[in-house]
Amino acid sequence: MKTLNRRDFSVAVAAAILLPITTARADDNAMEVHIDNFVFQPAELKIKIGTTVTWTNRDDIPHTVVSAGKFRSKALDTDDKFTFTFTDAGDYKYFCSLHPHMTGMIKVE
């Protein structure tokens, strides 16, 4: 729809470089989700039971990470982190309670 500007392009390149590294870390029982431009990245994450996921807010606006009845972060200011360890299998839909159009999913198996 739009041509990538230079910043988007470098983000895309950076993501392409980082992707194999994050994937490789799946066995480390630690995974990361970044919040950039009001988007959870990756939007969907498949993990094994016992994995700890860390969300980092890289926006200039606070966000939250909320999964109804499962977990709820406080408001995360810029560069603040929230971690949660998944001990039960299942699909965990979550969203930002301040900007509810921001949604994500953690699949635990």
Binding site: F95, S97, P100, H101
Partner: peptide, 16 residues
Amino acid sequence: HFVGLVNVVDLKAGGL
């Protein structure tokens, strides 16, 4: 007649 409304609580995932 002025009415002050609150539309920032109990927001639903995917909603407005």
